[in-house]
Each structure stands twice: as structure tokens, then as C-alpha cells.
């Protein structure tokens, strides 16, 4: 079996937002609409001068709260774990916004429906990488197969990310390393 997931390496991420821009370009998203966004870690979590980021979109959970709560069945889950949202079926009740602990579904006021990251399943089916992964210049954002790849060095619930084992988010994280502090003897 294949179980696709995003892997976010906060040590490699430089906060360039290429991932989010690539996503917007790929789907020609409306102004103001974002499916992937960069979240800087707060000072309480990463108290250093250089900043650290999580690039986050839909986490394609194993037990998706959006799918469970959608009254019209607009969400489906593929065998490879990707949670797909059908905008044509969606009636814009926004119940998924109340249910997703990660704020992934976004409401499109103009269209009257919800939208979210599809993990570019059409690209994956063609043997391509998701647009955000392909665009990342530092390889901070990668696509992994949780059933086949070694993800032992990653974390599922890092600081700055909700601890929600009830929905089992698939995204894995590599934590930022504290910068080396060099002190000069006075």
C-alpha cells in the first residue's frame, strides 16, 4: 500500500513561500485564497534571531474530520490516503471549517464553496510531484510514502502544531536545530 504525506523540514525551510506561490499558480487560485501557507514559529518555540517556519496545507489525515462532518459527502479519501474535496458537490455550509483542527479548508466567498489542498493528486497520478514540493528550492518540503519510506527521524506532532491523534494527520516534520552560539572570550 502507498500512504502519501508531506514532510516539512523546518531546518531546511528558509521561508521563501515558493511552495504557496506554486500552489496558487498551479490552480489559478482566486486572490486572497491560499491552500498552502507559511507559519513562522513563535519565539516561545524557537527563540532565536533567525526564524523557523512550517509550510502547511491539508494534512490528509487518516481519520479526516472534514470528511466525517461533511453533510453532502463532498470529501472522499483515496486508497493512497489523499483526501480529495469535490467543489461541485460542496454546498458551502462550512462545517468542515468547524471540524478541521488545522484550518486547512478555506471558504471561497465568490464561488460559495470550500477549497483545500488536493496534494496535486492529478500530478501524482501522472508520476509528477505536487507543485509545492517541486517548487521548494531547498528540498524542505518533500513527498513521502509513510508505508515505504523511512520517516523515523521525523515528528508527527511538533511544537506549534495541534496534537490531534484523533484525526491522525499524515504530515511529518523535521524540527529546526538550535543555531550554534559562538561566544567570544572577553
Amino acid at each position: 500500500m502507498t500512504r502519501y504525506a508531506f514532510s516539512v523540514n523546518a531546518e531546511l525551510c528558509i521561508g521563501c513561500s515558493s511552495c504557496g506561490m506554486a500552489c496558487k499558480n498551479q490552480y489559478n487560485l482566486d486572490p486572497g485564497m491560499v491552500w498552502r501557507k507559511l507559519y513562522p514559529l513563535s519565539e516561545e518555540i524557537y527563540p532565536y534571531k533567525d526564524r523557523a517556519f512550517y509550510s502547511l496545507a491539508c494534512n490528509h489525515c487518516s481519520q479526516p474530520a472534514c470528511l466525517e462532518g461533511c453533510p453532502v459527502g463532498a470529501y472522499t479519501q483515496r486508497d493512497d490516503g489523499i483526501v480529495v474535496h469535490n467543489e461541485d458537490v460542496c454546498i458551502g455550509c462550512r462545517n468542515c471549517l468547524r471540524n478541521c483542527p488545522f484550518g486547512a479548508p478555506r471558504y471561497n466567498e465568490e464561488e460559495g464553496h470550500v477549497e483545500k489542498c488536493s496534494m496535486c493528486w492529478q500530478r501524482i497520478d501522472e508520476g509528477l510531484l505536487p507543485a509545492c514540493v517541486q517548487a521548494c528550492p531547498t528540498n524542505a518540503l518533500t513527498l513521502v510514502d509513510l508505508d515505504a519510506d523511512d520517516v523515523s527521524g521525523t515528528v508527527q506532532y511538533p511544537p506549534g502544531f495541534p496534537y490531534r491523534p484523533d484525526v491522525e494527520p499524515s504530515t511529518r516534520f523535521v524540527l529546526p536545530v538550535a543555531p550554534k552560539v559562538v561566544r567570544r572570550d572577553v
Partner: peptide
Amino acid sequence: LGKPLGFIRMLTNIGTA
């Protein structure tokens, strides 16, 4: 609702929603 005419479909997912 963003699409009020879709109201009738709201009974689709009665199993979990």
C-alpha cells in the same frame, strides 16, 4: 449556505455527519 439549492443533498452523509 454558499449554494442554497444544494440544501436537499444535506442528508447524504447521515452515517457520520
